[in-house]
Every structure is written in structure tokens, then in C-alpha cells.
Design a protein around this nucleic acid. Structure first.
Lengths: 153, 153
DNA sequence: TATTGTTATACTCTATAACTATA
DNA sequence: TATAGTTATAGAGTATAACAATA
């Protein structure tokens, strides 16, 4: 029996990614990064990155929310939230007020400026998401969101 | 007109995340991180993180693939690939051979050990994905993957 | 004793600039 | 002149440990 059919190492013409594309995790990660890439560029106008945006949005929709509640809702760690909240307070988007029932905690409240900015930012977020997935119909987008929530909620 | 209805700052009982949950990017990111979390724990047994796994899988399914082709296929940057490839070569999972047509490039080839390990790892990946999304039916999983690919492919 | 918020710090992941060898 | 691969390094993003104040 001979060994290898010839002495030349094979080269790849077209990369075959079929196996990876059968994996849910691979597809979810690639799709998420694709949308986030568009998000990053647009939201830089408002000085928001994805997590900043989520934090600010939750504060607007939940006036008086605490840092601990934000961390739980967004699955982030307390030390990594401190800088974001400080930056938003410095920008005049939120204020801290003592929590009515818990002396350890501080309630986070949106300022009028914060509410106004987030109204614009949330509208931008919706528009950029449509632009980031132009081949998705409205019905497909709805189905996709429902199925994604079955994974993490 | 009076000012605020009373002097106490409101507190939040149940956090309302309804707005964020209407965003495709938010849901895609949360779902991807949820699956990746399970992936990280299981694949640590094989000393693979998500990108390592993708790189090794593409090499097995595309013997002779170059670093450049890997970077393009996986959307990663060349400097960040070097360490992964070196580590896999050191582990005996792959070998480098000169590219037949391009003296600048090196073809990456799986060793028998690399093929054997990836056969196990790919099987594990499939199983852990099912476990990471237990509420998804087979049909829903298929639909979800198809819709995710409409975003990034 | 447990929890909220915070500081300091380490580790991982990703991005940029510049170099070499070859096309 | 452009590209493949590499090195060095900088910047985000995420993680753990430990502390003060309050429950």
C-alpha cells in the first residue's frame, strides 16, 4: 500500500462552515455580534454602549430602581455597574435619592434630561435594529424574539 | 398647583423590562450569553473556549485552511488567532505545513489526535446546546437557527 | 449574620500599529 | 505595492476579594 496519494498538502478553496452553522450557540453569537456592531456605531452618538443603554433604559422605565435590582435584571456584577452609574450621574441623566425603605440602598431616578435623551435613544435603537436585520420580516422578527426569550428567560 | 404628590421617592417592587425585551439585539445578546455560559463550563473539559472550538472545528472540516481564511470565516483579527493556533499545535491537535501555492501562508492540518478530540467535542457541543435550551422544540430550534442566519450571513 | 454599595485589582477578550517575508 | 503571518501593546469587558454601612 502507498502512503499519501501525493506529496502536496491540500489547500482550501471555499471554507466549509456547515458544521458550525448547525450550532445554536454559534449562530446566536454571530447574530448578536452583528447587531451589536451596528448598535455600537449608532449609540456612540449618545455615548452609550450596549450595557449603558440597558441600564439607562431600565432606570427611565423603573424610577427608583436600585443598583442591586439593575444587576439582577441585566445579569451584571455590582463592581462593573458603579462606573456606569457614576458617569450617568455626572452627565446629569440620573440622580440618586435615598431609598424609602432601605438605608443601605440608593434609588436611581431619571432627570428630565435623562428622560429626553432616552426617548431619542430608544427610538434610534428600534430603527437601527431594523436596519441591522433588513432581511427579516416583521413576523419573523417577532418569532425570533419569542424563541430567543425561551432560551434565557 | 402642588409639586410632587408626596415627599417620598418611589421604590421599585418588580423590575419592568418590557421595553428591552422588544429589542432584537438585547434578546440575541442575552440568549447567546446564556448558551455560551453552558458551553464554557462543558468545553473547559477539553480546554476549549468558544472561539478555540470554532477554529479547531474549521481546521478539522477544512484541512489545509490558512490563518487568513480562518479570520475571515470567523470574523476575528489575525493577532488574536496566533496564540490559539500556537496552543493547538503545542497540544498536538494540529500541524502546520507549507501552503502548496503561496509561500507566505501555512496550511493548518488536524492530527489524528485533533480529529479524535474534535469528534468528541462536537458531540458534546450538540448535547450541551440541547441542554442549554430545554424549552425549545426541534422545530423551533431549526426555525431559530434559520432566522439568526438571516441576520449575519 | 446577611446585604448594599464600593474600591482595588486581576483576568479575558478585542483592537491597533508596526514589522518580515513573500506575492 | 499588496498580502500572510507575527509581535507588542493598548483598550474594553468581565471576574474575585475585601471593606464600611445598614438590615
Amino acid at each position: 500500500m502507498s502512503s499519501a496519494p501525493n506529496d502536496t498538502a491540500p489547500s482550501v478553496d471555499q471554507v466549509n462552515s456547515d458544521y458550525l452553522e448547525t450550532l445554536l450557540g454559534y449562530n446566536a453569537r454571530r447574530a448578536a455580534l452583528s447587531i451589536i456592531d451596528v448598535f455600537l456605531r449608532k449609540m456612540a452618538e449618545h455615548d452609550f454602549r450596549p450595557v449603558d443603554f440597558s441600564v439607562a433604559s431600565l432606570i427611565v422605565h423603573n424610577p427608583g430602581i436600585t443598583s442591586r435590582q439593575l444587576c439582577t435584571a441585566l445579569n451584571i456584577l455590582p463592581p462593573n455597574l458603579v462606573g456606569m452609574v457614576n458617569a450617568m450621574e455626572k452627565r446629569g441623566l440620573i440622580i440618586r435619592r435615598p431609598h424609602p425603605n432601605d438605608g443601605r440602598a440608593m434609588g436611581l431616578h431619571p432627570t428630565p434630561e435623562g428622560k429626553a435623551l432616552m426617548a431619542i435613544a430608544e427610538e434610534d435603537a428600534y430603527k437601527l435594529e431594523i436596519a441591522a436585520a433588513p432581511r427579516l420580516t416583521a413576523a419573523e422578527r417577532k418569532t425570533l424574539i419569542r424563541l430567543l426569550q425561551k432560551i434565557y428567560l
